[in-house]
Simulated assay, not measured.
Amino acid sequence: MPRKQDGYTLIEIAIVLIIIGLLLGGVLKGQELITQAKIRNIINDLNGVTTAIQTYQDRYRALPGDDPAAAGRWQDSGGNTLTTVATNPGDGRFDGAYGDNTAGAPGAAQETLLFWQHLRLAGFIPGPASGPGSGNPPANAAGGLTGIQTRGMGFNGNIVCLSNLPDKVAIAVDGALDDGNALIGQIRAKHQTGPSPIEDPVSNTAPGTTDAYVETGNNQYLLCKSL
């Protein structure tokens, strides 16, 4: 007499497939929620820098980092006089590059470093206002840097730049705040081909030409917005 073979019924297989589908749907939905949260937070990062600059200008009649009166207005936590803006103070431009930090900046008086210290001293952004790291740019919502500089990406004026943005996030932010075109407009982008947060951490070279968006799921972009 032939032996009966055990196996799954069609109903059991259908139930397993439904469970797998629900699990996959939950994972994909969770990833999409994370992406949407990053998009909102990056937009908030950009708007927050713009608002902080405008508020500082309204109060002190100068750009943070380029403020010639800052050293006479504040002292560090030890009561010492702050570093004075050394290069063209009050000219409305930022000397340095968006990725400058206390370890890699050309000089202690880089305006791109003093920018963050002045905003912290004024109480407009959180972080240490004196000592090591007081001028370092903050991290953005994508884990890269938020920095400022003058010129780059085809802009001649002051810009705010955010690094390490996933392609989907960069495209969505550009589309929400500008024209969705990485090559033109008030928001432009450059494909990051090197490690984060900046491609050249030694010389902190300014972002140059722009690159069109290519959504692969793996690309990262440096996004810069005109101030």
Rank of each mutant, 00 (worst) to 15 (best):
K4N: 03
K4E: 09
K4W: 12
Q5S: 02
Y8N: 10
Y8W: 14
T9C: 05
T9S: 06
L10D: 06
L10I: 14
E12N: 07
I13K: 10
A14D: 10
I15S: 05
V16E: 03
L17R: 00
L17E: 06
I18T: 15
I19N: 06
G21I: 05
L24R: 07
L24W: 12
V27E: 11
L28F: 13
K29F: 15
G30H: 07
E32S: 11
T35P: 02
Q36M: 09
A37M: 09
R40D: 09
I42A: 00
N44L: 08
D45Q: 02
N47C: 03
G48Q: 10
V49L: 09
V49K: 11
T50L: 05
T50M: 15
T51N: 09
A52R: 03
Q54I: 07
Y56F: 10
Q57T: 04
Q57R: 14
D58H: 07
R61V: 00
P64I: 00
D66I: 03
A69Y: 13
A71K: 05
Q75T: 15
G78T: 09
N80Y: 11
L82F: 01
T83I: 15
V85K: 00
N88H: 04
G90N: 08
D95P: 00
G96K: 06
A97W: 01
Y98T: 00
G99L: 04
T102P: 09
A105G: 11
G107I: 13
A109S: 15
T112Y: 04
L114H: 00
L114F: 00
R120Y: 00
A122N: 12
F124A: 04
A129N: 01
G131Y: 07
G133T: 08
S134L: 02
P137S: 09
N140I: 01
A141P: 06
G144E: 05
G144Q: 13
G144V: 04
I148L: 12
I148M: 01
G154K: 05
F155P: 07
I159M: 04
V160L: 14
L162C: 14
P166G: 11
D167T: 06
A170K: 08
A170N: 04
A170G: 01
V173F: 13
D174T: 15
G175M: 13
G175K: 13
L177S: 12
D178R: 08
G180S: 07
G180Y: 08
N181C: 09
A182C: 12
A182H: 03
A182I: 01
A182K: 06
L183Y: 08
I187D: 01
A189M: 05
Q192P: 06
T193C: 05
G194F: 14
S196T: 15
S196E: 14
S196K: 12
S196N: 13
P197S: 02
I198S: 14
I198E: 07
D200M: 04
D200S: 07
P201C: 03
S203Q: 13
N204T: 01
T205N: 14
A206R: 14
G208C: 10
G208F: 12
G208H: 02
D211C: 03
A212E: 08
A212L: 06
A212P: 03
E215L: 15
T216F: 15
G217Q: 10
N218S: 15
N218G: 14
N219F: 05
N219H: 13
Q220G: 14
Q220V: 12
L223F: 09
S226Q: 15
L227K: 06
